[in-house]
Deep mutational scan, measured.
Amino acid sequence: EPLWIRPDAPSRCTWQLGRPASESPHHHTAPAKSPKILPDILKKIGDTPMVRINKIGKKFGLKCELLAKCEFFNAGGSVKDRISLRMIEDAERDGTLKPGDTIIEPTSGNTGIGLALAAAVRGYRCIIVMPEKMSSEKVDVLRALGAEIVRTPTNARFDSPESHVGVAWRLKNEIPNSHILDQYRNASNPLAHYDTTADEILQQCDGKLDMLVASVGTGGTITGIARKLKEKCPGCRIIGVDPEGSILAEPEELNQTEQTTYEVEGIGYDFIPTVLDRTVVDKWFKSNDEEAFTFARMLIAQEGLLCGGSAGSTVAVAVKAAQELQEGQRCVVILPDSVRNYMTKFLSDRWMLQKGFLKEEDLTEKKPWWWHLRVQELGLSAPLTVLPTITCGHTIEILREKGFDQAPVVDEAGVILGMVTLGNMLSSLLAGKVQPSDQVGKVIYKQFKQIRLTDTLGRLSHILEMDHFALVVHEQIQYHSTGKSSQRQMVFGVVTAIDLLNFVAAQERDQK
């Protein structure tokens, strides 16, 4: 057995438009009618409502009807409940999964919650491996369901041993009777949507819809739904939504950006999952974080739909894509998950301010006199920076000697690579993860907040409520011999709460 199987392995699926269902090699399930009293909570997966979006479509000038398939009504709160249950049931049916076995899954959280929910009911041990950027709410729900959680670096490539995929496979090879159901490759993922989600949409719309818009992560949702719609409703256009920084969209030119990270969760990847059939997507749109969270908040405030950030991405694209539809036509959007997962993220004004998705003037509360002053007023001194090749031991000596707790790590040209902190280095040394002679590049981390000289002290204040420091950066445009230009970030300084307090105190003292 291989040590790991690539999540982007070539698909062996034989589905073709027009091929009889009787030739399918898979076990198919028909939607079942729910009894009045459910035998367990797993029976509350599927049969989610279709809700008309009344205000947002009109606000953006849509002539067509805009409908939302509300997947956050599933038992675990997301569309991923469907595939989690289906993968477990299919693994039980073919004898792969037996009582007492362990389920391991690399996930952005929602599939993990679905699997942990099913594992709690069915009696399996469950280990979820997820990147650090995923919300604390997801972690809390997983723990409450009895799952064990392993976190991995957000910026690790999918084929790196440190990625959530790599760590999951390492655990599988170490733990007896453990299984990775593997949402990236498992046919049960798109089949769950082909058999149930798509049929529900067709039934709820009486077979009449002209466009379907869905955000894409593993691709199982859009693949399964689109294949069924292509068979039953061939005139329906399928629109895929991919965040900026991901590479799922086609044509490839759409993916060209210097951005590699994004805040919206559960969609987009740096590889093409095996289950994603991009041939059934008629057109791709890219979405960005700001519009995703703005539209998610709009869905909550104006439509009462308590959905997550990827739902915002989907609707932001839908109001663009559906401009081509006329009166009497219908566009369906998939709202994948609930706001429950993001209470401390985009639902929080403070978080939105820190990330730059909300401006101070958007909030009406009274601010102190210094709130709208610029960061450049602080008069920061030149920063202490270190090269990635310097040793951890030497870096600790320098920081202690100069009285700093942290320093930016830059390359020879001064471009920011990340940050090192005294606390992080000492804990890594004590844990045996690094040696004093190791290069400081081994303990770089990139989960820090950046701020510009033109940003306000109010925004800085919000950042420092949650973080010990902020890195002050400025952009530099560099022209190359080819005539092309590129933008790079340079370090201007490091600012802490002490710097802000000293500035405010000094100004008030001078005024007296």
Rank of each mutant, 00 (worst) to 15 (best):
D362L: 11
G458I: 07
G432Y: 02
Q329M: 14
F357W: 07
E360S: 15
E412N: 08
L305R: 01
S313G: 11
K286M: 02
G423Y: 02
L457E: 00
K359P: 04
G403H: 08
T456Q: 03
H394T: 10
L306Q: 06
V472S: 10
R459M: 13
H480F: 14
K283F: 12
S246L: 00
Q406K: 06
L453R: 15
V319D: 03
A505I: 08
L358T: 05
F293K: 00
R459V: 05
L460M: 11
T391Y: 04
C331N: 02
G312R: 05
N502V: 10
I390C: 11
F448T: 04
I416T: 09
D270A: 02
G393F: 15
I390E: 08
L248I: 07
L464Y: 06
R278E: 03
F271M: 05
L305V: 13
L387C: 09
Q435R: 11
V333Y: 05
M490G: 14
P408N: 00
K345A: 04
W351G: 03
R459N: 10
L471H: 07
L426Y: 11
W351M: 05
T395K: 11
K433Y: 08
T314D: 02
K433S: 09
V332R: 00
A311N: 05
A321L: 13
T344S: 03
T279D: 02
T395D: 08
V504H: 09
I334M: 11
I239G: 05
K345C: 03
T279I: 12
V281N: 03
L380K: 10
L353R: 08
P408G: 08
E508L: 13
K402N: 15
V264H: 01
G266L: 00
W371S: 09
V386K: 06
K484Y: 15
F503W: 10
T274W: 00
R400W: 11
F448I: 15
V280R: 13
V264T: 07
L254N: 12
I272S: 08
G418P: 02
L453G: 07
E291F: 09
A431K: 10
F357M: 00
I477N: 13
A292N: 01
Q406Y: 07
C392H: 05
A322E: 01
L306A: 07
Q259E: 14
L453T: 09
I390M: 13
L430A: 13
A470I: 03
V339F: 07
P251I: 06
Q354R: 08
V375P: 01
K366S: 12
S310L: 01
D337Q: 04
Q326L: 02
T454S: 04
V472E: 14
G308T: 00
G414H: 05
T454K: 12
D277Q: 06
A407F: 13
A311H: 05
E303H: 06
E475H: 09
K283T: 01
R509Y: 09
F346C: 02
S428P: 15
Q354L: 13
A292S: 07
M298L: 15
R297L: 08
P383C: 07
R340Q: 07
A322K: 01
T294C: 06
V495I: 15
V415L: 14
Q439D: 03
Q435L: 15
S428H: 02
H468K: 09
S486A: 05
I239R: 00
E258T: 11
R488F: 15
V332Y: 00
P251F: 02
P243E: 07
Q302L: 08
L464K: 08
A470S: 14
P251Q: 05
I416V: 15
C331M: 06
P273D: 06
V333F: 08
L378V: 06
I498T: 12
L457V: 11
Q450P: 03
A249W: 04
L471M: 13
E465A: 08
D349N: 15
R509A: 12
I238F: 09
G245C: 15
R452H: 15
I272K: 07
I444F: 02
A316Q: 14
Q302S: 15
Q478C: 14
H372D: 13
A316T: 05
A413C: 14
L363A: 04
L399F: 14
I477V: 12
E327C: 12
V241D: 06
H480L: 09
G328P: 09
L500Y: 09
K512R: 15
V443Q: 12
E263I: 05
T257D: 13
V504G: 10
L254C: 03
L471G: 09
W351K: 01
A249S: 03
I239T: 02
V504S: 08
D362V: 12
S348E: 14
L460S: 07
D411K: 12
I444H: 11
V319W: 00
P243H: 07
F295C: 15
I463P: 11
K442Q: 15
H474Y: 15
V495R: 08
D411Y: 13
G328T: 08
I463N: 04
C392N: 07
F293L: 02
S381L: 15
I247R: 08
H468G: 04
W369C: 07
L335C: 04
P243L: 02
Y262P: 05
H474P: 11
V472F: 15
A311L: 06
E475T: 03
V473L: 15
T294P: 02
V409W: 00
I238T: 08
P436W: 11
V420G: 14
A431M: 09
E412Q: 15
P251V: 08
T456G: 13
L417K: 01
D455P: 09
Q511A: 10
G304V: 00
T482A: 15
T456F: 15
N424S: 02
G483L: 10
E258W: 13
T391Q: 02
V440L: 14
V410E: 14
D510F: 15
R340W: 03
I239N: 00
N502T: 15
E291H: 03
T391F: 15
V317F: 05
D289G: 00
D411M: 09
G393Y: 04
A431W: 08
D438I: 10
I300S: 08
E244A: 09
G379Y: 11
K320E: 11
W370T: 06
G423K: 12
L426G: 14
V317A: 03
L373R: 08
H462P: 06
T364R: 12
P436Y: 11
S481E: 13
R350V: 07
M352T: 08
I239H: 03
E508S: 11
G308N: 02
I444V: 14
Q256T: 07
R459I: 12
T257Q: 10
G268Y: 01
Q435N: 12
T344N: 03
D467Y: 02
L248M: 06
Q447C: 14
M352P: 02
I477M: 14
F448D: 02
L305C: 06
S437A: 13
E475N: 11
I390A: 06
L380C: 08
P383Q: 08
Q507P: 14
V491G: 13
L399E: 07
M490C: 12
A322S: 08
H474N: 02
L426D: 04
S246Y: 01
L335G: 00
E327R: 12
I477C: 08
G458Y: 07
L248R: 04
T385P: 10
T389S: 09
T389D: 13
Y269E: 05
M298F: 04
A301W: 07
I247G: 08
P336T: 06
A292Q: 01
P383K: 08
G328N: 14
T395Y: 10
E250P: 10
V434G: 10
L353S: 11
G483Y: 13
L426V: 12
D411G: 10
V420L: 15
V275E: 04
I300P: 05
D510S: 10
M343P: 05
G441P: 05
D270H: 06
S348D: 14
L426N: 09
G493A: 12
K442C: 15
S428I: 13
F285S: 12
V491M: 13
A321N: 01
K355A: 07
V241K: 00
L306G: 04
H468P: 13
K345P: 00
P408R: 02
T482C: 10
P383W: 06
P383I: 09
G403Q: 09
I390K: 02
T260A: 06
N341P: 01
A321Y: 08
E361F: 14
T395W: 09
E303G: 06
F295Y: 13
N424I: 10
M419G: 09
W284E: 00
S428K: 04
T261G: 11
D405A: 14
F285I: 15
L353M: 15
Q323V: 11
Y479E: 11
H394E: 10
D438V: 15
G356H: 08
G423C: 04
